[in-house]
Nucleic acid binder design. Structure first.
Lengths: 158, 158
DNA sequence: GACTGATTCATACTTTAGTATTAAAATGAG
DNA sequence: CTCATTTTAATACTAAAGTATGAATCAGTC
């Protein structure tokens, strides 16, 4: 259904043109019969046809030719929410699969704490901190605390 | 002078049309005289004229009438940093009075580079890097690279 | 109750970081 | 040219970080 409708809409100008042509031919035939047009009035006759079809051509062209669509892209400045930038990237954090204690250590690490500082803060031994830090390195695929901080800041997980 | 030139340029299509019309009329007159067109071939004759003038009209329209230009304004969202959060705090940086080399070292430090990495990057010995790092610590009033990074990020100097 | 993962801790060792001191060479301003 | 600063570098040392391994304890799951 939609298909035929589309065809009709696309070719309606052509159909209209055909109808007008038919009407003209009938009119001419009628005039020919009615007034018995003689040879010397042929020029006027042709002239009228010429004028008519020229106008028709112009009309056709203006209606058939697609209007050029000129797309002007206007840049609109949109201010980004600043708060989003500092928000923790939960998805990235989840990917790392850190334990709660490891994440605690990471946060203290980010504050510039040494292993001894972290041990003191969490009331555990330095050995324990070292274990957590080592596990952290493996999970985050880094080799030092500075690399850890760089990656953590980059992923927005602290 | 320019005025007439303008008129000519603007109406050259019309003039051309006139000329074509004249040529056609002459051609028709010639055909009329040459073959003594009879009444029953009049339909074909008119048909040819109709087709010709339709094409002429179309041609006229496409050349005379300004192409319809539909201007569509599309807004493109351009994200802009609102805050100064990511901008380097020049005043704080100036306060620290770091030498250019010290600042270079600081930036590499922030990327998680080890002393060896920095030495390799700057084409200097590890001893030199250690010197720069030590001077950096004194100037920034810190005791380790992690503290340096924490403070540098806090002061927005990297 | 056995299993798993998290947390805790220790020891021994290697590597890296950081301190202190000294000093040569380069750079740039007055 | 001189002076101050920066950049470079070395040596010797200490401190901290990081690795490897093993193991005990505990909480939650099947």
């Amino acid at each position: 259904m939609n298909f035929f409708k589309k065809i009709f809409l696309n070719s309606r100008h052509i159909i209209l043109y055909g109808l007008l042509l038919a009407i003209l031919v009938f009119t001419l035939k009628w005039l020919q019969w009615k007034f018995l047009i003689v040879d010397n009035s042929l020029d006027i006759y042709i002239g009228l046809i010429a004028v008519f079809f020229t106008i028709l051509g112009v009309w056709l062209a203006t209606h058939l030719v697609k209007t050029k669509v000129k797309t002007v892209v206007v840049e609109k400045e949109v201010y980004v929410e600043t708060s989003d930038e500092n928000r923790i990237n939960e998805s990235e954090l989840k990917k790392l699969n850190l334990s709660s204690r490891e994440y605690e250590v990471l946060q203290l690490l980010a504050k510039g704490y040494s292993n001894a500082d972290i041990a003191e803060t969490l009331f555990v031994s330095i050995s324990t901190v070292k274990s957590h830090v080592s596990n952290l390195f493996v999970k985050m695929d880094v080799k030092s605390r500075t690399q850890t901080l760089e990656k953590a800041k980059r992923l927005n997980i602290i």
